[in-house]
Design a binder for these strands. Structure first.
Lengths: 233, 233
DNA sequence: TGATGTTTGAAACATCTGTTTGAAACGATT
DNA sequence: AATCGTTTCAAACAGATGTTTCAAACATCA
């Protein structure tokens, strides 16, 4: 078993149900499965996969030790179930934000950048659980425990390509073959405070969340526009 | 014991020597300590701290299991010894590169950016051991197992401040209170391919190392210059 | 050579890990 | 009430982990 996330990629069922009737119901937090998924979101996102023991999970979920293996088959399956849902949510939120802003008449590059940058930064600033899954994703990639195909397919083929097309639409001078690298660099600008928000608050005196967002939008916009002009000469 | 790296910060001796005569000699790879440090560089940087077992380390170093605890006191001390050395090396290389380029007459913003961006990107592209310690650093920060003070002191107070002053020197229009954020964003642009080089090769068709470096320099330069102009109006 | 301090080595230790087991409790249907 | 499948629970399992032990080997100096 090389890559943990092969099961995620193939989107296999993670529940040990014999009929396909039972689906994960996240609103119902009285059952053991729901509490285990809550505990998984909290603990896995905080400490990572290996650092979180089944005993911690079941203590947090106030259930028996064997419940993880009974309901999910294994610790890995519980992880995969929690991860896929969080990841899908995150991607969908971003895609919807892009579509929304691009449908507005007279949309500018700054509008698009703000739509992509502001929500995740605010989420991570407020410490939302959802935002922690992104750090977890990065950690998994760095740990080389996640199948790179997973990243390529879901992030590149969906978000990066969409964002690249939007850039080209708003800044016509951009060369098509540089779009992906452009998106990568913008992603770097976004990921940096996303990953290290704790440090930003220590390193940048008098930092406000609005000031940070404005800076990022201006920085990225200036880079893209300047890059487009440079391509001409 | 909360933070593993408190020992690193205080720069304590990690060798169990009774007299201060014995110092780590990295060139002499015939002794057990040297081989253990080599193994630590290789395995810790590849797989992280928890994922690397003492048995793997001692097998790689071709020595007995007890050698780690005998020579270094604990697995953590071995990790700290290896990490501090790699980290110091990395910072020093960057600082030297900045000083060198800034001493050149007629230095441009692009010169500075290239001096900061090119060497680490080439190192990670060629898969040098030294480059992996940066991924390890990020992993440790994300795992919250590293004392943030460590990062702040060594990276911010040395590299970030120096780079910010250099930016202001080369692009006079920049506002002083935005320098740190600017450096952070440039660091984001740099860190992105540094962390995810494997994915870049999959995601960007026809990517060359020179093309990537040129892109990053142009992107960062355009951002900084555009930002400076925007500050005026 | 003999004594001394240092280094190595195989084995054991204590603890933690994910998982399995089998009996008990539960809930619904007959 | 009796039977059924499902869920919970404490206990045990098998394996891996970092560390310790203590005797053997080694080097150094008297």
């Amino acid at each position: 078993m090389k890559h943990l996330f092969e099961t995620i990629v193939r989107n296999e069922a993670v529940y040990m149900t014999k009929d396909d009737v039972k689906m994960p119901v996240y609103s119902d937090r009285d059952d053991v499965q729901g509490r285990l998924l809550d505990a998984a979101e909290k603990l896995f996102c905080e400490k990572g996969f290996e650092q979180t023991s089944v005993r911690e999970l079941t203590t947090e979920a106030r259930c028996n030790l064997a419940a993880v293996n009974y309901h999910f088959g294994s610790k890995e399956n519980l992880y995969a179930a929690m991860f896929r849902r969080q990841f899908e949510t995150m991607i969908q939120i971003n895609m919807d934000a892009i579509e929304e802003v691009m449908s507005r008449p007279g949309v500018t590059l700054e509008n698009l950048l703000r739509a992509v940058i502001e929500p995740p930064i605010r989420r991570v600033y407020e410490g939302e659980t959802n935002s922690r899954v992104m750090r977890l994703l990065v950690r998994e990639v760095l740990n080389k425990r996640m199948d790179p195909e997973f990243i390529v397919r879901d992030i590149k083929d969906r978000m990066f390509d969409r964002l690249g097309r939007a850039f080209k639409q708003l800044v016509p001078g951009l060369l098509s073959d540089k779009l992906t690298l452009m998106v990568c660099s913008v992603d770097g600008v976004l990921l940096h405070p996303y990953l290290f928000m704790d440090l930003y608050e220590k390193v940048v005196p008098g930092l406000t969340i609005d000031g940070l967002i404005n800076h990022m939008v201006c920085f990225a916009a200036a880079a893209i526009r300047g890059y487009a002009e440079g391509s001409h000469g």
